[in-house]
Structure formats: C-alpha cells, structure tokens
Simulated scan of single mutants.
Amino acid sequence: MSNITRLRHALPMNQDINKALADLDSAIAKAVDAAKSAGLPQGILVAILHGQAHTETARMVNS
C-alpha cells in the first residue's frame, strides 16, 4: 500500500507510532492479499473492512 499518503500531524509522531502504523499497514496488506488469493469476493472484503472501520470510529466517538 505504498501509494497511500503518509499521516501528517501538527506535532511530530514518535518512532513507536510510525512503526506501529507501518506494521499495521503491512499486516492489512498481507491479509487482503491472502483473502484475494483464497477467492474471497471483493464485496465481502470491502464490507469487512468497512465494518471494522465503523466499529472503531464508534468506539472513539463513544469513549
């Protein structure tokens, strides 16, 4: 997913955050590739990712 714009923040992000973001990006990319290779329909993949994003957003808003 190297074509994604890097996050910018008003303050510099520390190296731990940058590493966590890079690891997360890599893990998601590998999981998506594995799902595609296994034949998972693209619509289901998109629905799962969208559902996870919605759930995390709700958690942040309600915390």
Rank of each mutant, 00 (worst) to 15 (best):
M1A: 12
A22N: 14
R59M: 04
I17F: 06
S63Y: 06
D16R: 15
Q15G: 14
L24V: 11
A35C: 00
M60W: 04
N3H: 13
S63M: 07
S63V: 07
M60F: 03
S63L: 11
I48G: 01
N18M: 13
I17L: 10
Q42D: 11
A53K: 05
L21T: 03
Q52G: 04
D16Y: 00
A22L: 10
M13W: 08
A47I: 02
S26A: 11
V32Y: 06
K19P: 13
H9M: 07
M13T: 04
M1L: 00
A27R: 10
S2A: 09
A22M: 08
T55N: 04
A20N: 15
Q52M: 00
I4W: 05
K36T: 10
D23K: 11
L7W: 06
H54Y: 11
R59E: 06
K19G: 15
D25E: 15
A31W: 08
A31H: 09
P12Q: 02
L11H: 12
R8F: 04
A22P: 05
I48F: 01
M1P: 03
A34R: 04
S2C: 08
H50A: 02
M13D: 01
D25I: 10
I28G: 07
D23H: 03
I48A: 13
S26N: 14
L11N: 11
S37E: 13
T55I: 10
A20C: 13
L7T: 06
H50K: 12
A38K: 12
A53F: 09
A31P: 06
L49M: 10
A20M: 10
A53M: 04
K36F: 02
G39H: 02
R6S: 01
L40I: 11
H50C: 08
A47G: 05
I17D: 03
N14Q: 07
L24H: 15
R8E: 14
A29Y: 10
I4R: 15
N14L: 15
R6I: 08
K30L: 01
N18F: 14
I44F: 05
N3I: 08
P41I: 00
H50L: 12
Q52L: 02
V61F: 04
A10F: 15
K36P: 04
S37I: 07
A10C: 11
R8H: 15
A47Y: 02
Q42L: 09
S26V: 03
K19M: 11
L24E: 14
A47K: 08
N18T: 10
T57Y: 09
D16H: 06
I44S: 11
D16A: 10
L45W: 03
S37C: 14
R8P: 01
A38R: 15
N3T: 14
N14K: 12
N62Y: 00
T57N: 00
G51H: 03
D16G: 09
G51V: 04
N14M: 05
V61N: 05
N18I: 10
Q42Y: 10
A31D: 06
N18Y: 08
T55R: 05
R59W: 06
